[in-house]
Structures are given as structure tokens and as C-alpha cells.
């Protein structure tokens, strides 16, 4: 270990960890300074360090999609990203959607279409739909199916999820 540290020092690189190190994370428009170990996932940083528990944790291995958040505008699995590698980047979570007590059109569409049973996967589903509509305000059913192909719903609410996404597109397009 000692020789390794010396050699790395010779290479003039900044070694962080294994203890806590400071990072800056912009979440839903607000920049936070966090002290985290390099092994901290983005998901645990959001939930445990920032108390943003809207992003759910289920499989914790990239096989369910319930932890979907937007990193620099693109949907990713927060459980498979290291928080330290999001240093200086911007993250959007489900908590960013409602404004001043008003639900976001995607959230209203999910309620109107009854697009959930147990609701556990819903934050992830909504963030995937958000990513789609940010890029393509006029999606087809195939576009919707494709963007939701990385979010499991064990209740099997897919037909209603698809309807909700299309209704949300309509609400967003018409500014309702």
C-alpha cells in the first residue's frame, strides 16, 4: 500500500477516499456540498445524505429501474452510478416535478389514467417519461414503450402506463 501511494503521488493525480471526500451535486436546481465515501452510490447519496426518498431502491443492481433519475438530462439508474463520479453534475429527481403544490402534468396524467397499483415503481416510470417528453413532445406509442422498457412494473400496469405517458404528452404540448 505504501509503495502504491508513493507511486500514485509521483503521477500527480488526486486520490480520494477510501474515507469521506467532498463533492458538489446539483439536485433539482440546488447545489449541495456532500461528504461521501467513493463507494457511495448516487442513489444512497440522494436518499441518505439528502433525504430525497422519492427515488426508490429495490434491486440495487440495475435490473428494476425504480431508481431512475436524470443525470445531465438523461435517464440513468442511480444505483449503478457512483456519487463521486457525479461531482459537479446536475441531477433531476421525482421531487423536482411538482411546483408550488401543483402536480406536474405527467403526475396528473398518471393519476387520471390510474397508471399504478402499488406505486413503488412510479417515480422511476415518471422520470423515464419526463426524459422522453423533454426530448420529444410528440411521442408515438412505440416511443413510449421503448423509453419505459427499462422500468419494471411487477403489478403489470403497462397498458395504463403507456396511456398515461401519451396523455401526459398531450397535456404538456397543450400547456395544460
Amino acid at each position: 500500500m505504501a509503495t502504491k501511494a508513493v507511486r500514485a503521488k509521483k503521477l500527480k493525480v488526486a486520490i480520494r477516499g477510501p474515507g469521506k471526500t467532498a463533492i458538489k451535486l446539483t439536485v433539482n436546481g440546488e447545489t449541495h456540498e456532500l461528504l461521501i465515501e467513493p463507494r457511495r452510490t448516487l442513489l444512497n447519496a440522494l436518499r441518505k445524505d439528502l433525504g430525497l426518498t422519492g427515488t426508490k431502491k429495490a434491486c440495487d443492481e440495475g435490473t428494476c429501474g425504480t431508481c431512475t433519475v436524470l443525470l445531465e438530462g438523461k435517464p440513468i439508474y442511480a444505483c449503478m452510478a457512483l456519487a463521486i463520479e457525479c461531482d459537479g453534475k446536475s441531477v433531476e429527481t421525482i421531487e423536482s416535478l411538482s411546483k408550488d403544490g401543483q402536480l406536474h402534468p405527467i403526475q396528473r396524467a398518471f393519476i387520471a389514467e390510474d397508471a399504478l397499483q402499488c406505486g413503488f415503481c412510479t417515480p422511476g416510470q415518471i422520470m423515464s417519461v419526463k426524459a422522453l417528453l423533454d426530448e420529444n413532445p410528440n411521442p408515438t406509442l412505440d416511443d413510449v414503450k421503448r423509453v419505459l422498457s427499462g422500468n419494471l412494473c411487477r403489478c403489470g400496469a403497462y397498458p395504463k402506463l403507456f396511456q398515461a405517458a401519451l396523455r401526459a404528452a398531450d397535456l404538456v404540448r397543450t400547456g395544460r
Binding site: 500514485a8 493525480v13 486520490i15 467513493p38
Partner: peptide, 10 residues
């Protein structure tokens, strides 16, 4: 995961 050090490759 066990702890580890982290280096950004320049």
C-alpha cells in the same frame, strides 16, 4: 461494496 480509493484519470 467494500471501500476503495478513487482517482480520475487525467
Amino acid at each position: 461494496m467494500r471501500t476503495f480509493e478513487h482517482v480520475n484519470a487525467p
